[in-house]
């Protein structure tokens, strides 16, 4: 469905997207994760033909984004990160205009508009001007608009930004239904890891314009290596003896806590506690947050690894 080849975008002296190569298959729900400014929106804008790549290209739905932009546009739907409805018009009017722009046939128009409005729960407020909507209602209107022409590839740039938990849950259900019934390929970005975990069958993590990880959520979680054990030690721990334990893969000191990646934590915790005197112990299997923090965020990485010696010294005092 989507083949991205050496896609690059340069702004004056900034490489926003740096030689990205990706293939996304039919009916996939692909999650694009990454910290603020990583280049997610820039990638989506290029794929949606709104922004010209500095070099490289992509094939979307069989069409080249550079040489066949019109064909690409007709086959994709998009929900932008920032609201883009006309707030002088009503929700209904916004949808109607877009139904025309996408050439939704006249006999389908009303039906489609009402069905997407119902879906996002705006049926009752459809004749209010958008400027009277709350932030979440505007968001829902954007999503309704993106679905209106039943595209085969859909880009969702932070689709649930600003939605309350129950609306978010509803949106998830709908996205799943959409993929199953309409056979849509979805590319979504999000900062909610549980959302990515719940919806996506593959995830690409992007940082400073480069793809730094690409796999299924479960493989990404496995790549962390073992479970995550957090200890709050009573006194300064004997790190050397902890390091010798072969089932501990990694040790980090964060804010007075020891964080360890441990194989088979349930069995090994009693042994660990023989080496450290701890006030509290908790362990859990890793989630995407852990993956994200480990891989994506340079600043957090520096605190965890690069700043290791300083923290170690601090701890000793």
């Amino acid at each position: 469905m989507i083949k991205i080849r050496n896609l690059t975008k340069k702004y004056e002296n900034l490489l926003a997207v740096d030689n990205v190569n990706l293939e996304i298959g039919k009916n996939e729900v692909f999650g694009l994760l990454g910290p603020n400014g990583a280049g997610k929106t820039t990638v989506i804008h290029m794929l949606a033909t709104l922004l010209k790549p500095s070099s490289g290209t992509a094939i979307v739905n069989g069409y080249d984004i550079i040489s066949q932009p019109a064909k690409v546009r007709a086959s994709i739907g998009i929900v932008f990160q920032t609201p883009s409805s006309d707030d002088m018009l009503t929700g209904y009017e916004n949808l109607k205009i877009h139904a025309f722009l996408y050439g939704v046939p006249s006999f389908e128009r009303e039906k489609r508009i009402q069905s997407v409005l119902d879906l996002v729960g705006l049926g009752e407020r459809q004749h209010d001007q958008v400027k009277k909507y709350s932030g979440g209602m505007r968001r829902r209107l954007e999503i309704a608009r993106g679905l209106l022409h039943e595209p085969t590839v859909m880009f969702l740039d932070e689709p649930t930004l600003g939605l309350d938990p129950s609306s978010r849950g509803m949106m998830w259900d709908y996205i799943k239904k959409l993929v199953k019934e309409k056979e849509v390929t979805l590319i979504l970005t999000t900062h909610y890891m549980e959302e990515a975990d719940h919806l996506c069958n593959r995830i690409g993590i992007i940082d400073e314009g480069r793809v730094i990880a690409l796999d299924t959520p479960s493989n990404l979680k496995k790549s962390i290596g073992g479970d995550i054990v957090k200890l709050r030690p009573k006194s300064f721990p004997d790190l050397e003896s902890l390091r010798k334990l072969i089932y501990i893969r990694r040790i980090e000191l964060v804010e007075g806590e020891i964080m360890m990646y441990v194989d088979n934590a349930r069995e090994n915790i009693p042994d660990i506690l023989r080496h450290v005197d701890a006030d509290s112990v908790e362990f859990r299997s890793p989630d995407l947050n852990d993956v994200f923090i480990k891989l994506a965020s340079k600043t957090i990485k520096e605190q965890g690894e690069g700043g290791y010696m300083e923290r170690y010294a601090q701890y000793g005092r």
Partner: peptide, 13 residues
Amino acid sequence: FDFLKSVMVAPVS
């Protein structure tokens, strides 16, 4: 207000 963006991404010349 990004309305233009939503029009430009539609199949409209």
